[in-house]
């Protein structure tokens, strides 16, 4: 059994059937008030992850987007640009396959793949266990690439410093208002694939305006993970976050 989160190997491995399951109603039922947030368990584990990261001065970002917006491409390019100036590790979340973790490993960074199966988002429990095998270095940057899904990952805190929403220009500029929870939860919106702007009707200013409606403080950053345009600003933002994470840690 896991000592941190209390999980067993299976959800109900303690469930042996030698006790009596015939409960008769003796009219002795009672009402009890609970008033507990359904996400309380996830939030507690997320706080545990946050403490783990803070102790080690690790700056963690949770990358969220619809499938195919370019999260892995952006990460590979980012790792190449950081060029071993500091350690980087990646937790890859996908329903199936290790494709994305393999792409990250090919850059030389540490990576672990989480396959969620039918699950539509990463949760704090999965990420806490990923730390055990990943062992992210002190003072490093940790990227968590969430499952491609603009809805569900918004509700699940993983212990990250910030959520970063990636929106590619082929998706349409109204996504921030169609999927407001995600853009509300994110500190930054990366607008990716701007090399394709000449070929699509994507209005960058309108996308930013929609995002600011649901989140007035959101930082917007147009980039192309293909050509590298906008990468300096993205890297500068990561550097600044990393500097602060290290200052806070003892």
């Amino acid at each position: 059994m896991c000592t941190v989160c209390g999980c067993g190997t299976g959800p109900h491995d303690h469930h042996d059937h030698d006790h009596d399951h015939h409960h008769h109603d003796h009219g002795d039922s009672r009402l009890i008030a609970i008033e507990q947030n359904i996400l309380a368990h996830n939030d507690r584990l997320a706080e545990g992850n946050r403490a783990y990261l803070a102790e080690r001065g690790i700056f963690a970002l949770n990358l969220v987007s619809s499938p195919g917006s370019g999260k892995t491409t952006l990460l590979c390019r980012t790792i190449e640009a950081i060029n071993n100036r500091y350690p980087v590790s990646v937790i890859e979340g996908d329903q199936q396959t290790r494709h994305d973790a393999d792409r990250i490993l090919a850059t030389g960074a540490k990576a672990v793949q989480i396959n969620t199966g039918k699950g539509c988002h990463l949760d704090a429990h999965m990420v806490g266990h990923a730390f055990e095998s990943l062992e992210p270095a002190n003072g490093s940057v940790l990227f968590i690439e969430n499952v491609g899904n603009l809805v569900c990952p918004a509700a699940f805190d993983l212990g990250e410093a910030y959520k970063v929403a990636i929106l590619s220009v082929t998706e349409g500029e109204d996504k921030p208002i169609k999927y407001p929870d995600m853009f509300h939860a994110a500190a930054m919106m990366v607008i990716n694939k701007i090399d394709l702007l000449p070929y699509v009707d994507f209005d960058v200013e309108a996308a930013i305006a929609w995002a600011r409606k649901v989140n007035p403080d959101i930082v917007a950053l147009p980039v192309s993970a293909r050509t590298g345009e906008g990468m300096e600003e993205w890297l500068a933002w990561i550097n600044e976050g990393r500097r602060r994470a290290r200052v806070v840690s003892p």
């Binding site: 109603d25 003796h26 009672r30 009402l31 009890i32 008030a33 609970i34 947030n37 359904i38 996400l39």
Partner: peptide, 20 residues
């Protein structure tokens, strides 16, 4: 206007249980 603060409607809570 857009200066709104949500005061209810975001709940995801277990409220009560009937147990035996």
């Amino acid at each position: 206007g857009h200066h709104l603060t949500v005061t209810s409607g975001e709940e995801m809570r277990i409220k009560e249980m009937e147990v035996a």
